[in-house]
Simulated scan of single mutants.
Amino acid sequence: MRITLFLLPLGLAACATQPVPRVPQNSAPPAPSFSAAGLERVMGQHASTLTRLLGEPDADVREGPARKLQFASNICVLDAYLYPGKDGAEPRVTYIDTREPDGSAIDRASCLSALTRRDGGR
């Protein structure tokens, strides 16, 4: 009987559930992360290569030595940022940013793929 009284609290403790951590209701979802796969056609390229691939840019913004070319369709918007090399070489794409027309995130490679076919999608 003594053993039963001693083991009873241990048995009940084993059945207890652990509290589930609560996530605050107003916390934002984590930002999506996108890979660079599929971007080989634009990264490191000159403006002329982008124009041949995507057509005339919808915006061409220059600020000092930097340049931003923007290409848009009804599916997405792509901003390509070009910077000259250390030796003053012709600017090349060093970064791209993409978004849906409403500002929502979109995979960069998917946007690029859509823009290469945008002639009929505008």
Rank of each mutant, 00 (worst) to 15 (best):
P84A: 06
L5A: 13
A59C: 01
Q45H: 03
H46M: 12
L5E: 15
G38F: 04
V61M: 08
Q45K: 12
N74G: 06
A36G: 03
R108V: 04
L54F: 10
A80L: 02
A109V: 01
N74M: 14
R2D: 13
L53P: 10
S110T: 13
V20N: 05
R108I: 03
P19F: 07
L7G: 04
L5W: 08
D97K: 01
F34M: 03
C111L: 10
N74I: 10
C76F: 04
R122E: 12
N26K: 10
A66C: 11
M1H: 12
A66K: 14
L112W: 10
P21L: 02
S110H: 07
D60R: 03
V42T: 05
N74T: 15
T116Q: 13
D107F: 02
F6M: 15
G55E: 09
C111A: 14
Q45M: 05
D107V: 01
K86C: 00
E90M: 13
S104A: 09
G55D: 09
N74K: 13
G64K: 01
G55P: 11
L82R: 03
F6A: 13
L115G: 08
N74W: 00
T51E: 14
T49C: 08
R99E: 04
D60S: 06
D102L: 05
E90D: 11
P19Y: 10
A59E: 03
A37T: 14
D60N: 05
D102G: 07
R62D: 12
L8Q: 10
P9H: 11
I75P: 01
R122F: 08
G121N: 14
P9V: 09
T17C: 07
R108A: 15
G64C: 01
S113P: 06
S110M: 07
V77T: 12
L10V: 09
L8R: 08
A72D: 00
I106G: 05
T17S: 08
L5M: 12
A109I: 05
R2S: 11
P21A: 01
P19V: 09
A31M: 13
E100Q: 12
S48C: 04
F71Q: 01
G120D: 07
G38K: 03
T4S: 03
A36S: 07
L10W: 06
P84Q: 10
C15V: 13
P91R: 13
N26C: 06
A114Q: 09
D102W: 00
R118C: 08
V20T: 07
A89P: 06
V42C: 13
A28I: 14
L53Q: 08
D79S: 03
I96E: 09
